[in-house]
Each structure stands twice: as structure tokens, then as C-alpha cells.
Design a protein around this nucleic acid. Structure first.
Lengths: 139, 139
DNA sequence: CGGCGCGTGAAACTCTCGGTGAAGAGCGAC
DNA sequence: GTCGCTCTTCACCGAGAGTTTCACGCGCCG
């Protein structure tokens, strides 16, 4: 069960936008892409999906780019992952009538567990975590 | 993030073996495969991997087939999934040095969450669950 | 020894993912 | 109005993993 690179890119992009959220300025796709070593043309597709789910918003023209659509505390990792994948934890078994009901229950437990964990991580959390780690240097 | 069909097949096979564990008889691959609508030739490969991890064992020749290598209570869903996939929750990000440390922490939380849940489900649990559901019919 | 069923490896096939390129559309500056 | 900047959209391709099937070798039991 391997998380796609796409989800990783999406999470990085949103994190980067969260970091620059205070500036209020729109961020260009190319800048975001370069900041994380992601192919710009690919990142575009991801951002469009994120926009469709109102996680980010875009501004066109000169000085255009992308912004978070909400404050970082209101965006969870689960939101981002679901936006890119649909259900985070999926398996053919859940839509297979041959699947024994006991197993179905087990898959659903796993799904619920992942969802709960992912929904409990907001990007504000991640920002705080990053800052507190920085402060460590001063001690 | 989609669980492969292979994991599902593996789980079904082990569950089926657990159900028949009391008989003490070796179960033929074809019987197991037919009982769940799984391609027999594919199931063989899965069973070989399960055998390598000492989750099942095999008997050759006439009256041969597969058996659980331990009692159902000692086999967890996590064991089976890891046997088929290596780490259950994997992502390229964890081996990418460009990955922001905050995100790395988040991925590890997800991984830990999945592992904990999967390791907490034994096949004995699943058997019990199935039986208690059967009993419901008598009430 | 002969048949049954496991053991193993490889070929073929499908499908998604990751990535690229180019043409189109809105916004601001001059 | 026109030009340049940047997002928007769509079409496509190559690689690789996952799934499936086939063929043949090997060990065990009667």
C-alpha cells in the first residue's frame, strides 16, 4: 500500500502555501514547484484539483498565483489527501460482494483509523511543529 | 492509496485456513481459490510468500495442501499485509531528503496508526466476529 | 513407480501514475 | 487596444507495477 507521489506533492504545496499565508500574496506555481523540487507542469494539475475542493484559490494575471482558501488551522491533511485520491484508504474488496463480511469490517477499521489520524492533523499543527523545532536551535 | 487485490486475496486465504484450522487437514490450493473466486495460479504465489514468513505451511503429495503455521490468535492482519507488501503504509516521501520534516512526521503518524490497527486484529478476532454474527440469526 | 499437488520462473497483458507540451483565457500595465 | 504574465485545460506518452496465465520440475504417498 503505497501513497502516491501526487499526495506528497499536494501536501508539500499546501504546506508551502501555509508558510507564506501571512504574506497575503499570491504565490506563483513555478516558485512553489522550485521550492520543493516538483515538476511545475505536474504541480499545476494538483493545484487545480485542490482549487476545485476550495482548499486553495487562484489569482490570474500579473502578480497572480495561488493562495490558501482558508486559514491553515481549518485545512487537515485528510482534506488534502482525499482531494487527490478520493477515499484515502481504498480497496477493491469493499466493492466486492464475494468479500467475507468479517474482512470487510477489518478494512473499514483500517480506513477509519487512517481517516481519523489524517483528519486530526491540521496544517497549523505542522507549522507549529516546524517553528518549535527551529526554536530548539536557540536553546 | 489503494490496497492491492493481492492483500485482499492473502487475507481471504488465511481467513479460510483459519476457519478450517480445527480440522487439522491440509487444504488444497484449488479448494481455497474456488471458495473465494480467486485465480488459483495467482493464489499459489501468494501462499508461497505467506509460507516464507511462516504464516502458513505446506504439505506435498496426495492429501497435501496448506495449513496455518500458528494458531489463528497469533496471526494478525498486519502480519499478513506486511508479508505481501513489506511496510503496509509506504511513501516515496519518507526516503526523499527534500521532504520537509514536518510532513515526514505526519506520514509516520499515519504509518503508525495503520500498523497499530492492523496488528490489533487477529484472525481469531475475525473468526469470533463471524460466529457471533451467525448467532444473531437465532435470536 | 505413478499420480497428485506443491514449487518456481517467466511471458504477456492491463492499467495507473508520473511527467510533458501546447494551445486557450483572464487580468493588469502601458 | 495590445502586450505580457500567469493560470486553465486537454491530449498524449513512457515506464513500471500489479495481475493473470502457462509450463514444467519436484517431492510425497500409496
Amino acid at each position: 500500500m503505497k501513497l502516491s507521489v501526487k499526495s506528497d506533492y499536494a501536501a508539500r504545496a499546501v504546506l508551502e502555501l501555509a508558510r507564506r499565508y501571512a504574506s497575503g500574496k499570491a504565490q506563483r506555481v513555478e516558485d512553489l514547484a522550485e521550492a520543493q523540487g516538483v515538476p511545475a507542469n505536474y504541480l499545476v494539475q494538483i493545484l487545480i484539483e485542490l482549487k476545485a475542493q476550495r482548499i486553495v484559490k487562484s489569482v490570474r494575471g500579473k502578480e497572480g498565483g495561488y493562495l490558501l482558501a482558508k486559514i491553515p488551522a481549518e485545512i487537515t491533511l485528510g482534506d488534502v489527501l482525499r482531494c487527490v485520491h478520493g477515499e484515502i484508504f481504498d480497496t477493491a474488496a469493499l466493492s466486492d460482494s464475494n468479500c467475507p463480511p468479517e474482512l470487510r469490517g477489518a478494512w473499514e477499521k483500517l480506513r477509519q483509523s487512517v481517516n481519523a489520524t489524517a483528519d486530526n492533523i491540521t496544517f497549523q499543527n505542522l507549522l507549529d511543529e516546524g517553528e518549535s523545532k527551529e526554536k530548539m536551535y536557540y536553546i
